[in-house]
Design a protein around this nucleic acid. Structure first.
Length: 931
RNA sequence: GCCCGAUUGGUGGAAUUGGUAGACACGCUAGGCUUAGAACCUAGUGCCUAACCGCGUGGGGGUUCGAGUCCCUCAUCGGGCACCA
């Protein structure tokens, strides 16, 4: 695609055929900056509206056309809300800690702070060129000590808090209150050593240190959270991940599982994201049951099940290989077999285990459990398919009614019984929750749901089990062995972790000579010299993970300069929840869950007044790139046109090479440009296609520098202007849909803006038209009001691609009518200004208005207008439209019916048949059903 | 395997509660203006037809006076989860 039209400057020198967009853009961007047009303060006299974009990570590649998509949409909404009289908070900042800057630092020695700053400046210039209405005075940068001061402070708050599960309280409380409780209840408490006390409290703190099996990525040299891993590999970089036991900082997110789940019902989010979060939290209701062990009265095997009703179908037990009591359960005669089995398990990576689901690997331990009701002996197995990290790490296996248990039973020759009446399990397990129980002692004859509650009651009565809710959600691992992150404000005194006093924050990230881990495997921060406390105490060298900085940034925007606290309560109260949050769905279970958790916690502390941070969420779709390929024959090194590959043995005989999309137009390669691209292509030989041209292959892929399919907003803006770019991005398709970028349609919106401009300009200069004092005609009003109705109904749901169409329809209609009513055009421009702000400001100012488009409230824009005084009804006869007729819009359906029946035309069409039924759709259609 | 979401002209995509399918834009065709091109203007453009008729929203079935829209079913594509007891 060509970005430069070769004789553009020449064109402009003669009669310009497009409006001088760059001049206007510079003028108005300067105006907005100098007048601080978009800076806001709390104003009790106006309703507030908080519209937030997910802030970007400032990467070295700069912005491509996909990045601003959501920002343009939110900017349109923000500008519209201002027009409607709202006090709009629309901030922007940078999520500036992260792995790419650190990797770059490792390679080049360049301090990540420097590269990050350069990247931010580039982003800022690109964003400014698009004409956004951000309040940059509120910019938040996560790697700025002024900001991470408060991230660290919240961490300390988490450390100093515990979660009170008492149903009457059900919130986080200061840990000192728990200490008081222990002092009162446990007479031994004051005799414990300080270390013992610390260890006990560690089990309650919301930020805690514990040894846990973590996802360790050897290549990155750090642990990763579950949402940072996909298919056993790191999301960033795709390196293998293994399980490793390590001491790590965690956040006790599980304490909030129930609240995070319930909160989902009170927010307006896409169903897909709600489903993902619900699934991620993974609530299961069931029972925990203690099974006695045959010949070992001291030991109990605790299991969790969601189907306690199937207890009479339990024919064996399975424990995870890593189960805490595994050693006690393995009998001497089975020891060798179990050891062999464990050896095989250990050699397997997480990935191998996942790929091996169907194998049903396992081994008998030699021990037996006692059935709590039947008192029969049940063999205990160790099985690969039972996870140590979920529930109790042990299950009661009911092969008749669970597929996995069934598979295991078949493989190991174990008994399979059905406990549902008339259900045959000889071929396959039945997981149905419908049915009547049989073979089940006191549960016989009950439907499943009743049996569940009855058996739980019985278990509780016998004190061998309790009803229990289990969550899939895990606590978040909060330490990373990396440099470029927030330091965790902790040091160790006599082995006891202590937080750095809040008045000494921020704990500033120190400089280091290298950004790699030390030779002894300690995190890079261990290289720091003369860091705070470092000379006196061992200090925490892990930093916080990438998601830490984004957990509360939206609160900071409300009060970005506050030195004392994250956000002042009165400001948090004024701005309240984020009314509209726009961003990609890739954060569905990461950032959006972590930040909800922080928000609930800060609510518990009384620092903010809303549990849920984001009232409405919208996921914009990704803009994809269309990559182009050339095909190099493996044997000869010749480049063969895509349409002739089959003549040379098909794609398999070729190396597919990404070629810069700038060299390709309509899939035809510009051979000269390609040859000049790189030295290795200088002497390339080509075998051309049927039309004597080299045809390239193509594929829709993520837009990426390495695929050479990137379109840069700067290039597009220099050719078509920011307003056409903005409108076109919105016009491209539904905002939530992923779509490939193409330049095919941008001419359309660009032409439209130029037509509007031409309507006003004479001899190259904008002139104030001679306004007519006559009242607007019905046609003019209809064109405007149709537009108003469309804008007001679609803006709230960001159905904005069709809004662009509506502007074109209304604008062209008004031009066709040669509308000379100032009032009509003013309203038209106000409505268009969120999409094309520079253009509208300029026209507006030449219409005798001073300065920027007035953001005063235009109440008429909020009223619902009658689109027209008459509605055209289509009169249809057994489903087919026969003729149309106009009735007043307000006319009641029954009156319409009567009129239609009485019409001459109707009797003509009915041809003497009886009217059985008349269906009136107000304003649209009258359907006559005849017999 | 489970849970979501999609499927409409040559292309991107429009179509409140079921109510004239294909808005708007691109592209294409013809004409105008130009020495020529660019730009601009006018008209046409779902498919099949010379035209009328007919057929048309992934396939099949259903409900309805009426279905892109609701129900059942199948197919294809995309996203998420995945031994979670």
């Amino acid at each position: 695609m060509e970005h430069q039209s070769p004789n553009q400057s020449q064109k402009e020198a003669q009669t310009p055929n497009h409006y001088p967009f760059s001049k206007w853009e510079q003028k108005w961007q300067k105006f907005w900056k100098e007048n601080k047009t978009f800076e806001v303060t709390e104003d009790k006299n106006k309703p507030k509206y908080y519209i937030l974009d997910m802030f970007p990570y400032p990467s070295g590649a700069g912005l491509h056309v996909g990045h601003p998509l959501g920002y343009i949409a939110s900017d349109v909404l923000a500008r519209t809300k201002r027009l409607q009289g709202y006090n709009v908070l629309h901030p922007m900042g940078y999520d500036a800690f992260g792995l790419p800057a650190e990797q770059y630092a490792i390679q080049t020695g360049q301090h990540p702070a420097i590269t990050t700053k350069e990247n931010r400046e580039r982003y800022r210039a690109q964003l400014d060129a698009i004409g956004f209405s951000f309040d940059w005075s509120r910019e938040v940068v996560t790697c700025d000590p002024e900001y991470y001061h408060h991230t660290q402070s919240v961490f300390i708050d988490l450390f100093e808090s515990w979660y009170d599960n008492d149903p009457k309280v059900n919130k986080a409380r200061p840990i000192v209150e728990l200490v008081k409780r222990f002092e009162a209840q446990d007479l031994n408490w004051k005799n414990y050593s300080e270390k013992e006390k610390s260890d006990i409290l560690m089990n309650y703190r919301l930020a805690y240190l514990s040894e846990a099996s973590v996802n360790w990525c050897p290549h990155l040299g750090t642990v990763l959270a579950n949402d940072e891993i996909q298919d056993g590999r790191s999301v960033r970089g795709g390196h293998p991940v293994e399980q490793k036991k390590m001491w790590q900082w965690h956040l006790r997110m599980t304490a909030y599982a129930e609240r995070l789940l319930n909160g989902l019902t009170e927010i307006d989010w896409p169903q897909a994201v709600i489903d993902m979060q619900r699934n991620w939290i993974g609530k299961s209701v069931g029972a925990e049951i203690d099974f006695a062990i045959d010949g070992n009265a001291a030991l109990k095997l605790k299991i969790f099940t969601t189907r306690p009703d199937t207890i009479f179908g339990c024919t064996f037990m399975v424990i995870a290989p890593e189960h805490t009591n595994a050693k006690d359960l393995v009998k001497a005669e089975q020891q060798k077999a179990v050891d062999d089995f464990l050896l095989i398990m250990k050699s397997k990576t997480e990935r191998d285990r996942q790929e091996n689901i169907m194998a049903a690997q396992g081994i008998f331990t030699g021990s037996y459990a006692i059935h709590p009701f039947l008192k029969t002996k049940i063999p205990i197995y160790m099985g690969e398919y039972v996870l140590a990290t979920y529930g109790t790490g042990a299950i009661m296996a009911v092969p008749g009614h669970d597929e996995r248990d069934y598979r295991f039973a078949k493989k190991h020759g174990l008994k399979i019984v059905s406990i549902l009446k008339d259900v045959d399990v000889s071929e396959v397990a039945s997981e149905s929750k419908e049915g009547i129980l049989s073979n089940s002692d006191f549960l016989n004859g009950l439907p499943v749901s009743e049996a569940i509650s009855k058996v739980i009651a019985k278990l509780e009565e016998l004190k061998v089990g309790v009803g229990k809710t289990q969550f899939r959600l895990r606590d978040a691992i909060f330490g990373r062995q990396r440099y470029w992150g927030e330091p965790i404000p902790v040091y160790f005194e006599n082995g006891i972790p202590k937080t750095i006093p809040k008045d000494e924050l921020p704990l500033v990230l120190p400089d280091v000579d290298k950004y790699l881990p030390t030779s002894t495997g300690e995190p890079p921060l261990a290289r720091a010299k003369n860091w705070k406390y470092q000379d006196k105490f061992p200090i925490e060298y892990s930093t916080m993970p990438g998601f830490a900085g984004s957990c509360a940034y939206f609160l900071r925007y409300m009060d970005p300069k506050n030195k004392n606290t994250l956000v002042d309560k009165s400001k948090a109260d004024y701005w309240g929840q984020v009314d509209f949050y726009l961003g990609g769905s890739e954060h569905a279970t990461g950032h959006l869950l972590y930040s909800r958790f922080w928000n609930h916690f800060l609510f518990d502390l009384g620092k903010i007044s809303h549990r849920e941070p984001f009232k409405k969420l919208f996921n914009q779709g990704m803009i994809l790139g269309r990559s182009q390929f050339v095909y190099r024959q493996v044997d000869s090194g010749k480049y063969v046109s895509f349409d002739r590959l089959k003549d040379f043995g098909g794609e398999g005989k070729f190396t597919k090479i990404h070629v810069d999309v700038k060299f390709v137009k309509n899939d035809i390669l510009d051979i000269e440009k390609f040859k000049n691209w790189r030295e290795e292509y200088n002497s390339a030989e080509f075998i051309l296609g049927d039309h004597g041209q080299y045809v390239c292959g193509s594929a829709i892929e993520k837009m990426s520098k390495s695929f050479y399919n990137v379109f840069n907003p700067d290039d597009i803006i220099s050719e078509y202007g920011a307003d056409a770019f903005r409108m076109y991005e919105m016009f491209l398709g539904p905002l939530e849909q992923a779509k490939p970028w193409n330049m095919n349609g941008i001419e359309g919106v660009f032409r439209f803006l130029n037509k509007l401009w031409r309507f006003w300009h004479q001899d190259g200069e904008l002139t104030t038209p001679k306004w007519s004092s006559a009242p607007a005609t019905e046609e003019e009003l209809k064109a405007l009001h149709t537009l108003i109705k469309k804008c007001m109904s679609d803006i709230e749901i960001l159905s904005i691609n069709t809004m662009v169409s509506s502007f074109m329809i209304a604008g062209q209609e008004l031009m066709k009518l040669e509308c000379d009513k100032k009032d009509i055009w003013e309203k038209f421009l106000i409505l268009l200004s969120p999409f094309a702000p520079h253009f509208c400001e300029e026209i507006w100012s030449t219409m005798g208005k001073v300065g920027s488009i007035s953001f005063a409230k235009f109440p008429e824009l909020n009223e619902s207008f009658l689109v027209s005084k008459v509605s055209t009804y289509a009169i249809s006869f057994n489903g087919k439209t026969r003729f149309t007729v106009d009735f007043p819009t307000e006319m009641a359906a029954t009156d319409v019916e009567a009129k239609v029946k009485a019409m001459d035309q109707t009797t003509k069409w009915c041809e003497g048949k009886n009217i059985v039924k008349v269906i009136v759709v107000p304003g649209k259609i009258v359907n006559l059903v005849l017999k």
